[in-house]
Design a protein around this nucleic acid. Structure first.
Lengths: 335, 335
DNA sequence: CAAGTCATGGCAATCGATTGCCATTGGGGT
DNA sequence: ACCCCAATGGCAATCGATTGCCATGACTTG
């Protein structure tokens, strides 16, 4: 691989001039710069990003930490983040942490010295641990709010409210919530929003779980939900909702005829399942894109940027898993 | 951040000794090394991977290039690859190229100087372009065979054969294939395997498409398939298969009653859709894991490793989208 | 006892690009 | 004619770890 020294020799100038010809437009005479560029092109010079990064610290790498890459929730987020990163000439490094705070810590330890900034997607770390790492590198948090650290979140309150209104429109008066992981900030928000909405709309809510944010998590609570008095259920996320529907089917409860089900996020698969899932759609690609843009903006400006979390709108996508409440309570099937 | 110089000073030894204490076990007196390690621990020294990489070229980074991160096909592959990479103390850099050879080239250009090796997942580049890049960095190719370059593939021939046998068992005698992208190596393999199997089993096959490897790709050919004489269809992949089922439903063709559908890969969603999809399951996580392991093995050994492509077994997962052929041909619905 | 061997640690060059500072030159202002 | 300044290019230090080579001293061995 040719270096600036090779280019410099071929041009009869000093290496520093070659360097400036590329990174300091205007600092070098236009003709000289043009000549250097031409020669560099000819001998196939490419700047070595490692060598550049050593003195400057600019690696052009950004980390996106996701709690589970196999969770379809992240696909569009990753895509959005990567697009935004590439647009700014950055490369995105996706780290998967398998829903484990310990692995997350280790992954960050590995990646942190390499990257210029970090986007934490649904982190499972403690607030204080996040604050510690935010001191080392510019950080943006997804789906969680920490005062003093820029964050990008979905408007869960509004989305939850919409879902509740929808269910109430369908005459449901007793609504369940299947909770996700305790450590999930979004879970807390959703449950709180449900209770607020329930009060405002004058209906009863009941909490189930917590369960793992997976299909089997949803399947697992199905019997409990089936035995309860609720006629509609809002699940922590789509995966849980879909698992729940299958679990309900297994114990003879029909969706939406006996019980309506609403999910969160509108992941790939939400419209594939049967019945197609009514869900509060998160603006996934926008979330990823905006997080990266916020991060880059923060890196560019000297001063720490906005502290107000960015609130991206969620909207209710109505499909087939919700329906008007049956006149009579279903008879409970075998458990 | 403390450096080896800080540690050296604190220990009263030379920086080179500190370096060796970490990277050359045995080269330094055991007591000295222990002391250095202790002091390093105390002042919180962490080796700077950038500085290490500059002289040695060892960045501990591996690239995995995927044609589309939002394609569920890759989730488990990424997971498998990342696990294998982390186990060897490498970090995986996932690059998304949106099904475009041009973007792939650009992404590689960006990432190549940073990584020690590359896994190409379903690359859309030409053979020659891949060979050029394989000269720059150790490379392993997924789902494609290039002589001289290590590759890891699914046993498409056997998998296709199983699918055909299954359909023939169900008395289908006229079977369609919905082709994927022309540039896809797997597509060629599958179509070839279909014809071979058709000959061996004495049934007719008909090719449709090619279509984009997406839901809409599948939906789009549905009318053509509906108008044809086939009673069963094998689709390029699960996405196309699911799209096809929806498209068929839209024109009044019932799956599996009127037409049986088989997919490829067994992605997330294949068992969620309705009817649940019968599909040739690719060993996704194993594919990712094995590709990275092969890459690392090739990097470790001086000599270029095995040239025989590694063939990972596929198996047929029978669900609800295939059924015995109806006695009479269906009546064709509106188009 | 002299010579050779081994263990251990230090010196200094190196990877490739960046950048603060200085030297040179030519032009403009007065 | 003199001074000053802007434009331009070069010198050399720097980022932090690695590593070939050499120096020292201890120990072995004939």
């Amino acid at each position: 691989m040719p270096t600036i020294y090779d280019v410099a020799k071929a041009c009869g100038v000093a290496p520093s001039t070659v360097s400036r010809a590329f990174s300091r437009p205007g600092r070098v005479n236009a003709e000289t710069a043009a000549r250097i560029r031409k020669v560099a092109e000819e001998i196939g010079y490419r700047a070595n990003p490692l060598a550049r990064a050593l003195p400057t610290g600019k690696t052009s790498l950004l980390a996106l930490v996701v709690s589970d890459v196999t969770n379809p929730f992240y696909f569009e987020i990753i895509r959005g983040a990567e697009l935004a990163a590439n647009a700014a000439d950055y490369t995105l490094l996706v780290a998967d942490v398998y829903e484990s705070a310990a692995v997350e810590r280790k992954a960050l330890e590995r990646a942190l010295p390499l990257v210029e900034g970090v986007v934490l997607g649904t982190s499972r770390m403690s607030d204080s641990a996040i604050r510690v790492m935010a001191q080392q590198r510019p950080t943006v948090v997804l789906n969680r709010v920490l005062t003093g650290i820029p964050s990008v979140i979905t408007d869960n309150a509004r989305g939850t409210r919409r879902a509740m209104e929808h269910l109430v429109d369908l005459e449901h008066r007793s609504i369940g919530y299947v909770a996700g992981p305790e450590a999930s900030w979004a879970d807390g928000m959703r449950w709180r929003a449900m209770r607020d909405a329930a009060e405002a709309l004058d209906v009863r809510v009941q909490r189930f779980g917590p369960v793992a944010p997976t299909l089997v998590g949803g399947t697992g609570v199905a019997p409990v939900v089936a035995d309860s008095a609720v006629t509609a259920v809002v699940a922590y996320n789509d995966l849980v909702a879909i698992g729940l529907m299958r679990g309900l089917a297994a114990v003879g409860v029909r969706v939406p005829r006996d019980v309506s089900v609403v999910g969160f996020d509108n992941i790939f698969g939400a419209e594939l399942c049967s019945p197609a899932l009514t869900t509060v759609a998160a603006p996934l690609a926008a979330l990823g894109r905006y997080a990266v843009q916020t991060l880059l903006a923060g890196m560019a400006s000297r001063t720490p940027p906005q502290v107000r979390p960015a609130l991206l709108p969620a909207e209710l996508v109505i499909r087939e898993s919700t329906a008007r409440r049956a006149r009579r309570r279903r008879s409970v099937a075998a458990s």
